[in-house]
């Protein structure tokens, strides 16, 4: 399964979900497919995307929140699964794009490559719903049920490692602009106030 193809399937089933992307390849592919500004493309804090998404999900409990995590980011903070399980957020879906390598740094192999079972780790942490999906047909078939089910739900997407990470360049804005575009998109989409009357 190619990452770009998996992102296209996810985008087709996204509905109203707000999306948080860990930095790297998955974020770049999500941007390439959706160009969506109600997605947050994290440019730092490797390992923290899932916990950031948890904080967001708890703050907007009526809105579905998806995190597009990466295997590298998950490995950097496996404890995020415990924190997530402790809250049992009904509106959070945790996707992990697993290509078994650090693609943005010359495809260097993932720690304990081929030796870890992320879905078992997620279940062990207390996320009862955890599945591995390794082909597009299964993703198409399973996604409606995953989307409809209450969270938390952990979905490991096994994708192919691809040699050219620059094939999908990052979003065309970053840093503080990411904050304001995403924050304004949240205000518009959800009718909430992220910023005060003077803009901060």
């Amino acid at each position: 399964m190619k990452t770009n193809d998996a992102m296209r399937v996810l985008a087709a089933h996204r509905g109203d979900a707000v999306v948080v992307c860990a930095l790297g390849m998955a974020a770049n592919e999500w941007w390439a497919v959706t160009r969506s500004e109600d997605s947050f493309y994290m440019h730092g804090g490797m390992g923290l995307a899932a916990t950031f998404a948890l904080g967001l999900a708890l703050s907007i409990p009526e809105t579905p929140v998806w995190v597009l995590n990466s295997d590298g980011s998950l490995c950097m903070n496996l404890g995020c699964l415990l924190t997530e399980a402790g809250q049992q957020p009904k509106n959070l879906k945790h996707f992990v794009v697993d290509n078994q390598c650090y693609q943005t740094v010359e495809n260097m192999p993932m720690v304990n490559q081929n030796g870890a079972d992320y879905t078992a780790i997620a279940r062990g942490a207390g996320i009862a719903q955890a599945v591995l999906v390794d082909n597009l047909a299964d993703l198409e078939r399973q996604l409606p049920e995953i989307v409809a089910a209450p969270g938390p739900y952990f979905i490991q997407l096994r994708v192919d490692a691809e040699p050219d990470y620059q094939r999908a360049p990052p979003a065309t804005y970053e840093g503080p602009e990411m904050k304001y575009r995403f924050g304004r998109a949240m205000e518009k989409k959800l009718g909430i106030k992220v910023f005060g009357p003077r803009g901060y």
């Binding site: 995307a49 916990t51 703050s59 924190t83 992220v194």
Partner: peptide, 14 residues
């Protein structure tokens, strides 16, 4: 570090 990430996410939920 997760306290920081939770709070950063909550910021965008208002």
């Amino acid at each position: 570090a997760e306290t920081i990430a939770v709070c950063a996410g909550a910021f965008f939920g208002g």
